[in-house]
């Protein structure tokens, strides 16, 4: 890292909007920043009102560079969300926002970083990890990977169809889903971590993303399972 990274605002045009779950929308944005980025990174989004008032927030990128020149964001419509509210209620194809980034070298992965890759996600924390799985499938299918995913319900699990299809189709990838608000509700626990690690073997890279509470619990469980803390990278949101 000898050259300093400089982030500037670039226009981005909405090219697709699709509901993924009752609360989460996939938003695809065409932007010249989307030529090259690493799985797991995020972008800053800036919206500007008629009178010049601005708001900005950070969103993880779900996509990987694929030649389309677009980013896919997965935005959860939070109650009172100033920017997420615009995405969930207003955004339509052709709208323009501003982006800068991609940002975040620490919470990102590419094949040369190696594996096996142990991923743990709570709720919408799955988005940057989905990008890592997409990158793996695109270019490094030989690297083993496992995803522990805690969602409230199956209906609220983001990209569940894609993840289950990958679990069926991709040798070396296993999905370990648990739901916390359905029959047989269960939170992430030592047995789930043990099951993922039994399939995966000792991980070489670990990424954990979700709420503070989820990340704290999952980090402790994974360290208790014998993984060196220095292998673990975390990203937390909310309170």
């Amino acid at each position: 890292m000898t050259e300093p990274v400089v982030f500037r605002w670039h226009p981005a045009v909405v090219t697709a909007v699709e509901a993924l779950t009752p609360w989460v929308k996939s938003v695809r944005l065409a932007c010249d920043l989307a030529k090259s980025y690493r799985a797991g990174q995020h972008v800053d989004v800036r919206l500007t009102a008629e009178d010049g008032y601005r708001a900005q927030r950070s969103y993880s990128v779900a996509s990987v560079p694929d030649g389309s020149g677009t980013f896919e964001l997965m935005v959860e419509g939070l109650p009172d969300g100033e920017v997420s509210g615009w995405f969930s209620e207003v955004a339509a194809v052709g709208d323009t926002v501003e982006l800068r980034g991609p940002i975040g070298g620490s919470f990102s992965w590419d094949g040369p970083d190696g594996g096996p890759l142990l991923l743990a996600a709570g709720g919408s924390g799955v988005v940057p990890l989905l990008a890592m799985l997409r990158r793996r499938a695109q270019a490094y299918p030989e690297i083993p990977a496992a995803l522990i995913y805690s969602a409230r319900t199956r209906a609220e699990a983001i990209a569940l169809a894609e993840l289950e299809a990958r679990d069926r189709a991709e040798p070396g990838f296993s999905l370990h889903l648990t739901t916390t608000r359905e029959d047989r509700a269960r939170r992430v626990d030592a047995d789930l971590v043990a099951a993922a690690m039994a399939r995966l073997g000792p991980p070489g890279r670990v990424f954990i993303c979700g709420s503070n509470r989820f990340v704290g619990t999952a980090s402790d469980l994974i360290v208790a399972a014998g993984v060196a803390p220095g292998l673990i990278r975390t990203e937390r949101f909310g309170a």
């Binding site: 919206l47 708001a55 501003e98």
Partner: peptide, 26 residues
């Protein structure tokens, strides 16, 4: 560059004066 349909949630003046640019209160 104006974003179509974006109004934003303005802070009360006493909050706004304490918030640096681009920040929101939590």
């Amino acid at each position: 560059m104006v974003t179509r349909g974006f109004v934003g949630r303005r802070q009360p003046p006493e909050t706004g004066a304490r918030l640096p640019p681009g920040q929101y209160l939590t």
